[in-house]
């Protein structure tokens, strides 16, 4: 695979703000890959996307496509497609005209046929004469994607494209969009604040906070081997445990725990709630403080030696409030930076 997009030391300040919106960001995206930029609102992910698209100019750093800087190019010269959060379909044109407007590179005679091809592909064949307002949110979403793909861009940017869909539609549309992107061999960057969306949609995830890239890796890497406390907590519930490590073993309130790195001294560990298990013992140090039944599992809050632990168990393992339990783990803990 060859590198399509490379971002070097990208930095952006906004007027009247001391802190950089995006600060010395480095990353690259391979041809045909889907990357998700994940982070809370205000972390700089959308600003990064808008700089790649050319809607904003960076204050420092460079953006390269196929080793060529594109900073000197205007948006219309970049050949980068964008799918907007609210789709941004042209309200005064029907679907066909919306798509035809994207086909500058295709001869006029072929445009109508090509528009029908794209509509067919996103499952809206025969609806070319409909106006955008006459479609449901999910359908508008697919037209927006078709319009972007119809311009045959080198790179597709997706700005929170599923956030305006209701929960039932979101998952199916997400799968559909991923399938279409992959089928067209498109390279794409998705911006989202939804960790589940990022985990299931992307080949790689970049987690951002305060304008910085905290960690870039595969979904499994990010979830199972977070490098910072922020990444660990942003991707779901986790237990952050302070401990002293020696010879790859940490002494914790839960007893000795194996570590994924051979470090020494004061460390912070992350253990996911599903990596902990419970055992009922009359003289155990742990007490059940709270229990939530969540359908597919139980979510427990356990107090042990003055610390709180989150534990997820199967629906078969039911413990009562104030019951004495032993918290333990059979997994390696991950060391994170505070």
């Amino acid at each position: 695979m060859s590198t399509l997009l490379r971002i070097e030391q990208l930095t952006k300040y906004f007027a009247h703000q001391d802190k950089a919106a995006v600060s010395q960001l480095n990353m690259q995206v391979e041809q045909g890959e889907i990357l998700a930029l994940l982070g809370p609102s205000g972390c700089g992910k959308t600003t990064t996307l808008r700089m790649i698209a050319g809607f904003e100019q960076p204050d420092a750093g460079d953006i390269l496509i196929q080793q060529q800087s594109i900073l000197g190019l205007s948006t219309q010269q970049r050949k980068i497609g964008m799918v907007f959060q609210d789709y941004a379909l042209f309200p005064h044109w029907n679907l066909q005209d919306n798509l035809i407007y994207a086909m500058k590179h295709i001869s006029r005679a072929d445009r109508v046929k090509k528009a029908e091809y794209w509509l067919e592909l996103v499952g809206l064949g025969g609806l070319g004469k409909r106006m955008p307002q006459e479609l449901s949110g999910g359908q508008q979403q697919r037209v927006a994607l078709a319009r972007t793909l119809a311009a045959e861009p080198k790179l597709v940017l997706l700005d929170e494209p599923f956030s305006n869909l209701d929960a039932a539609l979101r998952e199916s549309t997400r799968d559909e969009v991923r399938r279409l992107l992959k089928a067209n061999g498109a390279t794409a960057i998705l911006v989202t604040h939804d960790q589940a969306e990022a985990l299931s949609f992307a080949d790689h995830i970049g987690v951002m906070q305060n304008g910085k890239l905290e960690q870039l890796g595969t979904p499994e890497d990010i979830y199972l081997r977070p490098q910072t406390a922020f990444v660990a907590e942003f991707l779901g519930h986790t237990n952050l445990i302070f401990a002293t490590a020696k010879n790859g073993i940490a002494q914790t309130a839960l007893g000795p725990i194996a570590l994924n790195q051979p470090v020494e001294g004061q460390v912070t560990l992350s253990l996911r709630p599903e990596q902990l298990c419970l055992q009922a013992q009359p003289d155990a140090p742990g007490v059940v403080i709270n229990r939530e039944f969540r359908g597919h599992d139980y979510f427990y809050l356990i107090e042990q030696q003055g610390m709180l632990f989150k534990v997820i168990t199967t629906q078969q393992e039911r413990y009562e409030l104030n019951q004495r339990v032993q918290v333990s783990t059979c997994y390696q803990a991950v060391i994170v930076q505070k």
Binding site: A53, M82, F84, Y101, A102, K104
Partner: peptide, 27 residues
């Protein structure tokens, strides 16, 4: 009218002038 449709037009490769005449004015 949202600025998005103008950005969308640019992202599809159209110039400021084309965008103004074909996207902004009709709306």
């Amino acid at each position: 009218s949202r600025i998005n449709i103008e950005e969308a037009s640019h992202a599809l490769g159209h110039s400021n002038f084309t965008t103004f005449v074909r996207v902004v004015l009709p709306n």
